[in-house]
């Protein structure tokens, strides 16, 4: 017996997928196409006319030391966010996996930050670090550190990394915990009988078996730190001091909407698009091939 519903009509399937298609086309493909188009155009200084300039926008970008600096900032930021975020959440997941009593309570608390909007997360951390009255800034002052993320670029970078990591830990934690729980207990027991210490068991059995999860999260976290941290940065440092926390996505916004260089901004988004596509391709290739058991 045929259990699936089959539609005879030719147009009904199209109607059914139309909402999804419309959303994708209007909100993804249209802006992307617009950006592509704009990246090879230049606005007249006071608006009104557009001129085709070929790859001039891109050429200009790669000769702009500010843009290259923003690449460096982004690299430092995303590597630190990914590494810190992954290691802290792995540690939390390993500990949560051992908790017997109050497990649900513990997990629920750890998942909450994910429900906080990036801007709110940013504001939250700004309040705590606000010099001299913020809670943490106050403590830091007590131990002799004069915290000021408005002037000190290392402080600013630290602040946005903390806020970004804090926000992403929940997500990583959930995946790590699920990964840990899918490792059969008997494997760990077998390794214990084989004489492996808990430390060694973790690094030779648990960690390799988690590697598909870890790799997936690595890509997700890099993409997150590239794009979704915009709200955090805008609410905390606004790319400052100077341009020291202006990561690529923030520079796109700043150059486009503050400096009104639409062509340059569009060219930057095209480059970002290329980066995301590359990351996604790597992810699919890798996850399907290598890191799976």
């Amino acid at each position: 017996m045929e259990k699936r519903v089959r539609f005879k009509s030719r147009w009904l399937p199209w109607v059914l997928v139309a909402p999804q298609l419309a959303i994708t086309l209007i909100f993804f493909y249209w802006p992307a196409a617009q950006a592509l188009l704009q990246s090879v155009m230049m606005d007249a200084p006071f608006g009104g006319s557009l001129e085709f300039v070929g790859l001039d926008n891109f050429r200009q970008l790669f000769n702009d030391p500010d843009y290259l600096a923003s690449f460096r900032t982004t690299a430092i930021f995303s590597i630190l966010v990914a590494v810190c975020g992954l290691s802290i959440s792995l540690l939390l997941a390993v500990m949560a996996n051992r908790v017997v009593r109050g497990e649900r309570f513990y997990k629920t608390l750890l998942i909450w930050p994910y429900a906080v909007a990036p801007v709110v997360a940013g504001v939250l951390w700004v309040f705590m670090f606000a010099s001299p009255m913020g809670v943490i800034a106050f403590w830091l002052q007590a131990v002799g550190i004069n915290w000021n993320h408005l002037l000190n670029s290392n402080h600013a970078m630290t602040l946005i990394i903390i806020a970004a990591v804090w926000k992403q830990i929940s997500y990583n934690f959930l995946f790590f915990l699920a990964g840990l729980q899918s490792i059969p207990k008997s494997l760990i027991e077998a390794a214990a009988i084989d004489g492996a210490s808990p430390w060694r068991r973790f690094w030779t059995i648990v960690f390799p078996l988690l590697s598909p999860t870890t790799f997936f999260l690595l890509v997700i976290n890099v993409v997150y730190s590239f794009f979704d941290t915009f709200g955090i940065i805008d609410a905390t440092t606004k790319g400052g001091p100077g341009k020291d926390t202006s990561i690529l996505v923030y520079k796109v916004y700043y150059d486009g909407f503050k400096a009104m260089d639409m062509g340059g901004s569009a060219a930057q988004s095209v480059i970002l698009m290329a980066i995301v596509v590359t990351l996604t391709v790597i992810q699919f290739r890798f996850v399907e091939k290598k890191v799976q058991y």
């Binding site: 027991e189 004489g195 492996a196 059995i205 390799p208 078996l209």
Partner: peptide, 20 residues
């Protein structure tokens, strides 16, 4: 004593082979 100190070997129902 820890399992490793008991000088035993165990064969598990699901074999518990290290898949990687």
């Amino acid at each position: 004593l820890e399992p490793s100190e008991r000088d035993i070997a165990m064969v598990f129902q699901n074999y518990a082979l290290y898949p990687h």
